[in-house]
Design a protein around this nucleic acid. Structure first.
Length: 517
RNA sequence: GAUCUCGUAGCUCAGUUGGUUAGAGCAUCUGACUUUUAAUCAGAGGGUCCUGGGUUCGAGUCCCAGCGAGAUCACCA
């Protein structure tokens, strides 16, 4: 039987040290530790002229400087780093510290003081092993230069290893934890904003017998109990609308969607969406609300309404954001008014503009292509793009005054689509027609066109009140607010191709297949 | 899916025109050191050069195929 995940001299030595410690009576994996202070609190509560401050702290060893009969250790906890001074005269088991390593999790108790080099430090009266680190951690060395800049030497930087072993990345690269703290702040701020307005947070199934609500390819599975095909949801939309039919006037869900499509800097197969539906409101109302909510979120996460994006652009979230119609923007960037154009004329325009189209594309997709290529790359500041063509948005209500368009907008920030919204289509007759048109597109070869969902149509027949609905891509907003340029840097465990060389073992695929059948 | 780039010690990286036993810093080990902080000083160990073929007297280096990653493009709310 394999006893160690890795086998090199450093791992072997640490296993030996662990045995030495245990044979000396040390409990290598104890059950708890009475921690009184975080590293940050211990430092901030210390004042040179006050009485002795005694603390008990715990954290991972990130640096050791042994000096014979005394040692300096830096530990790191959730709040930051703290130096600990270990002195043989004060510690009967000092010699045992020889068997401690970088990466070990320890507890220490003592009193705070300031060293000769002016660092507030814990003078330990006791220390204890809390968890042995058996795999060497690539903790980088840091120094502070004359100007106070933090210089990190030989930082653990291999992106593949950082994503595959995120626990190591988080343990040794403190700034990575900050990204995810911001992500959490974003989500809690959104939730608080919506809860304060009495919208109901709900959970709807991830497993769908029929997928819908967006144009995307699904993940397919199989439900053994009923012997039926099953799909992971590609959007939250249709079930939330069913809840509106049931009488909830404001519902939202924060959850994962799954799309069986490409993986790149802005796409992960599973990603987090907010969807919100509010009865008796329309898309213009939702625009105001979204603007207000985003302003609050940006302030909470970023501390300012000016955000520096990964590509260096400065994004200004001061409301109001720009509002422009899709037709207006296309006219602005191509010089052509597409209002009322038929498919042939649109194809000709696309060709003239150097935009590629193919035979499977209907009017909606051709316009989408022109917009994506000629307009969207110019939209850096937050912009509400309004009034999409009907063919592009099968679940939105026809525009109250503009024929052929729907009441919808998409918020674009830094050329990225971030949040779609419609006045929700609730006329079952129109919805059936739109679904039928989607079915034709599907027959024409568009494998992302929507399916006809008879139960959803029945729900609309029961009656859904007029409502506005909005979706918000949480991962992409996190990217913008943290200045990360890859979605993988805002998802703890992004999808990676399995590493068979590194993870070869007895478990996984074969066994899973057996139970799946 | 296409193209380009990369894969060498636990980590970060060198490695010349193809040529002796593949190097450095950190980490690790041994020794010294009771206020250090990229601690310092002396010594030591550690390699599937991503994998498999090929060319060659000789391959980390050149060629082919594969695996993995990154970037760009294509696709994609």
């Amino acid at each position: 039987m394999q006893t160690r995940t890795q086998d090199n001299d450093q791992v072997a030595r640490r296993y030996e040290e662990l045995e030495h410690l245990e044979s000396a009576g040390v409990l290598a994996y104890p059950y708890a530790f009475d921690k009184t202070h975080s590293a940050a609190a211990a430092k901030s509560q210390y004042q040179d002229d006050t009485p002795e401050l005694t603390v008990a702290v715990a954290g991972r060893i990130v640096g050791i400087r042994r000096m014979g009969k005394a040692s300096f250790v830096h530990i790191q906890d959730d709040s930051g780093r703290l130096q600990i001074y270990l002195k043989k005269d004060d510690l009967p088991d000092y010699d045992q510290f020889r068997l401690y390593d970088i990466g070990d999790i320890i507890g220490a108790a003592g009193y705070m003081f300031r060293t000769r080099t002016n660092e507030v430090t814990l003078h330990a009266r006791s220390f204890t092993l809390l968890t042995k680190c058996l795999s060497p951690l690539p903790i980088a060395k840091e120094e502070i230069d004359e100007e106070g800049n933090r210089i990190v030497h030989d930082q653990f930087a291999d992106k593949e290893m950082r994503y595959r072993q995120r626990y190591v990345d988080l343990a040794v690269n403190p700034e990575v934890r900050d990204v995810f703290r911001k992500r959490a702040k974003l989500i809690t701020t959104v939730r608080r904003y919506l809860d304060q307005r009495n919208y109901l947070e709900v959970e709807t199934p991830v497993l769908h017998t029929m997928y819908g609500g967006a144009a995307a390819r699904p993940f397919a599975s199989h439900l053994n109990a009923l012997d039926i095909p099953l799909f992971l949801r590609i959007s939250l939309e249709l079930n939330l609308k069913r809840l509106m039919v049931g009488g909830f006037e404001g519902v939202y869900e924060l959850g994962k969607n799954f799309r069986n499509e490409g993986i790149d800097k802005t796409h992960n197969p599973e990603f987090t969406m907010l969807e919100l539906y509010v009865a008796y409101r329309d898309y213009m109302w939702m625009m105001e609300m979204t603007e207000e909510m985003l302003t609050e979120v940006v302030m909470a996460v970023n501390g300012s309404l000016h955000v520096t994006a990964a590509n260096g652009a400065t994004l200004d979230f001061t409301p109001p954001y720009r509002r422009a119609t899709m037709h207006g923007l296309i006219a602005e960037y191509t010089g052509k008014d597409i209002e009322g154009m038929d498919l042939a004329s649109l194809r000709a325009l696309a060709h003239e503009q150097g935009v590629h189209t193919d035979a499977t594309m209907g009017i909606g997709k051709v316009i989408d292509e022109i917009f994506s290529e000629k307009v969207q790359p110019h939209l850096v500041q937050p912009t509400f793009v309004m009034d999409y063509p009907e063919e592009m948005v099968p679940l939105a209500k026809p525009h109250r005054s503009k024929a052929g368009l729907v009441e919808s907008w998409e918020l674009i920030i830094n050329t990225q689509e971030l949040a779609p919204c419609f006045s929700e289509l609730n006329d079952p007759r129109v919805q059936r027609r739109r679904f039928t048109e989607q079915a034709k597109l599907r027959d024409a070869g568009d494998d992302e066109a929507m399916l006809i969902d008879e139960d959803f149509l029945r729900a609309l027949e029961v009656g859904m009140p007029p409502a506005a609905g909005m979706g918000l891509g949480i991962d992409r907003l996190t990217m913008i607010l943290t200045g990360e340029e890859s979605i993988r840097d805002v998802i703890f465990f992004p999808m990676m191709r399995p590493d068979e060389r590194r993870d070869a073992g007895g478990s996984d695929a074969a066994a899973a297949d057996e139970t799946a059948g």
